[in-house]
Every structure is written in C-alpha cells, then in structure tokens.
Design a protein around this nucleic acid. Structure first.
Lengths: 221, 221
DNA sequence: GCCGTGACAATACAGGTGCAATGCATGGGA
DNA sequence: TCCCATGCATTGCACCTGTATTGTCACGGC
C-alpha cells in the first residue's frame, strides 16, 4: 500500500472549505464541485475522501463541534466553576470572526438538521454534552435552590438566542456579553445583596428563568 | 381585461404550499416545480404569479410573518400588559403543529437570510416591531427599575432560544412555557416577596438577563 | 523486475433547476 | 363581432447537481 497522506487531515481540509462556503454563501451553496473549488482541489479528490455528500456534511458538522469543544476546554484554567461556565459560554457566542463563522455554520446545520435526522443526532449529542458540563459546574458551585440541569439548559437557551440576535445584527456583541454576565450574576449570586433576601431571589429566578431541561435521550444525546 | 381571480389570494395559496414544503423537507427542497406540485398546479402558474423564485421566497416570508402577527394580535384581549406579553410570546413558541411548522419555516429563512440580505431586512423589521410592542407593554405595566427595551429584547432572545431547543427536541414544550413564565414572573414581579428586597432584585435581573434581540419571530423577518 | 494499491483526475450520465418562450382558451370592452 | 389582455399550460434550454466509471501515476512490498 502506498499511503503517504494523513487521511483525517485531508478530510479536515475539505471540511474547512465547506465551512467557509457555508458561512459565506449558505449551506445551499455547498456542492461537491464548490467545495473542491474552494479547497483548490479536484472534485474527484473530494469524492475520494467522502463517498457521498451526506458523509461529507456529517463529517464537517462533527468537525465544527469538535472545534468548539476543543476551544472551550483549552481556553484557560479559571479557578471557579462560575469562571468555567462563563468561559465556555463565551466561546459559543459569535464574538470574533472565527466564532461568527462557526455560528453561521451551526445555524445552517440547525436548519438542515430539521430535515436530516442523522445530523440532528450529532447536534443533540454536543448540546447534551455541554449541558452536562454546565450542570456539573453549577452543582459544584453549590448554588442552593437551583436545579443544575434546568439552569444549564436555560443558559444554553439564552446563549442560543443571543447568538441568533448577534448574527442577524439585531444585537450588539457587547450587549450579548452583558446579558450573559447578568444572567450569570443572577445564577451564581452577584455580590451579596442584603443577605437572606438576595439569596432567596436568585434561586427562584434560576428555576424559572432557565426553564426547560432536556430530557436526555440516551441515544440521540 | 378578463381578470376574475384574486391575485393576492392565489399567491398566498402558493406561499402556503411553499411553507408546507419548507417545514417538511427544508428550504432546499423548495423549487418552482415542487411548490407547484405541492399546491396541485402547474409550474407555469407559479411562474405566472412570481416572476422569479426570489420573489416567491420573499412573498412567502412576508406571509409567514403576517400570519404570526395577525394571530398574536387577534388571540384574545387580555386586560393586563403582562397577559398581553405572555400571549404574544406564546404565539411565537412552537407549541402546536401550526406553530411548529411556522418555526421550522422561520428557522429555514433565518439561515437563508444569512446569505440573502434582502430577506434579513424583512426579518429584522418584524423583530423590531415585536420588540417595540413588548417594550411598550413593559412600560405600560410600570415596572420600575427596568429598561423596557432591554427587557423586551431579552424576552425575545429567550423565546428564540427556547424555540430552537424545542424544535431540535432538546427541550420539552411544557418546560419552555415554564421557563417563559418564570421569566415573566421575574420581570413583572411574582406575587410580593418580602417587599423592598424583592422589588430591587427583578429590576437588576431584567436588565441583565434579557439582553439581545429577538430571533424568534416565526415570520422570518 | 512486477504489480497492486492508494491517491487522485477526468469524464459521463441521469436527473433536477430556474427561467424564457410559446401556445391557447376565455371573457369583457369596443 | 372583433380584439386583445389575462390566466394558465407546455415545452425547451442551458446549467448545475450527486454519483459511477474509468484512467493515470507514484510508491512500496515481493
């Protein structure tokens, strides 16, 4: 066998091109030929590494999520759970070009997944993973009176919504960050506002505000 | 001239077919021929009423938004601003088949609009309209310490995020409603929790929590 | 040496796409 | 009655799509 190339690396290169394309011109502009052109290769090569378009799409989606995951983990090593949560959620918001691009891609895939259940599964898994992590941190923080799962789900919903607003230019980036911080303050307790009273409020807030909780379907994540 | 048909009515009929298609198989499945087939007419007729595909898409998007708008207004006539706000936001969440369909369509258009600025404009307008209405109601309610605009934007972001979660089956419908209600309680004040203290908290909460702009508008604006 | 296999390239093909052009029936104004 | 704009159907076209097929070339084991 004459294998001299790193197969996975090649696939990621193509996935990169796909993401650029999806971010710039939408997922509908993604075709084998366009991806090949964007990557500067022949369409034959794309076919060589992905037997079908669906396989290519699935791999690309996985790549995006892996990338977000990796960046979220490797960002820094904050001491407190609260900082950890903040770091993670900030990595999800479209605050720079890289993340804007990623958000665009994820949005495109989100709409696409409404039709392709296989992709939906992947997205759900990633979300479940994040929720689990967030819930764990909330639990670790020891905020009393809050259901960690609910809080995590609420945070994710908030960040999702904020991301949408920012992407469609209905909201400024700074405002989104401020909104997130406000919610975090609510959840973890700001400073100490008239103890006893301030304590009671946030718990109720959390329980209500971050509402749903995902029933984690084991299979779909 | 021999005009016996209601042009607008015909166009809405076609837009209906388009929406059904978009909800069921994604916006990528929307073609002149498919829309025609779904509506049970010839492709020639579609071309007769929409000179271009883009014109058809734009009209369909407008139709969805109008529909949501209309339903939101005509739902009922609740007495309090809070009820009004709740009614409106509930109309945006995908809580029944109709709204699930609308949400799917809006999501599809949202992703599509990231590429077609003309559509994005329409979506933004609708969102601005809703935010203005919500802000007015919040102002009318006379909640002190809250910026009505911020609160409105926050509510929209929350509902947007919740809608996404529900659509992608990461969140149960009931949980979404509970989440919304919790946020409303926060905003308008639940009952009266240790007055003075309970009063101060919500204001801060609102300002922070509901930050961004609304994504949820089913209409796709 | 060969030869097989992996890494690509080029091409072919059936089908779908948006859109233009054309055909044709009909019914109201002249 | 003629006339022609309207409402719609049919057809055609150039292009693009995903995929299958085939070809070519370089390498590495035998």
């Amino acid at each position: 066998m004459a294998r001299r190339v790193d197969r996975h690396e090649r696939r990621e290169l193509l996935a990169d091109a796909l993401m650029r394309l999806a971010a710039a011109r939408g997922l509908e502009a993604v075709s084998l030929r366009h991806v090949a052109a964007e990557a500067g290769v022949s369409t034959g090569m794309v076919q060589h590494y992905f037997r079908t378009k669906d396989e290519m799409m699935t791999f690309a989606l996985g790549t995006v999520m892996d990338r977000v995951r990796r960046r979220s983990q490797g960002a820094s090593t904050p001491a407190t759970p609260r900082e950890l949560v903040r770091e993670l959620l900030l990595q999800v918001l479209p605050l720079d070009e890289t993340r804007r691009l990623e958000n665009h891609v994820v949005l495109a895939f989100l709409a696409y997944a409404a039709v392709k259940p296989s992709l939906a599964t992947g997205l759900r898994e990633a979300a479940a993973e994040m929720r689990a992590f967030l819930a764990h941190q909330v639990r670790t923080a020891g905020v009393d009176g809050v259901d960690p799962d609910r809080a995590a789900a609420g945070l994710l919903a908030l960040v999702d919504g904020l991301g949408l607003q920012v992407l469609s230019q209905r909201y400024a980036e700074d405002d989104a960050v401020a909104a997130l911080d406000a919610q975090l303050a609510l959840l973890f307790g700001r400073r100490q506002q008239s103890p006893g009273c301030g304590r009671a409020e946030p718990a109720q807030v959390r329980a209500g505000l971050t509402p749903p909780r995902a029933r984690r379907r084991p299979a779909g994540g």
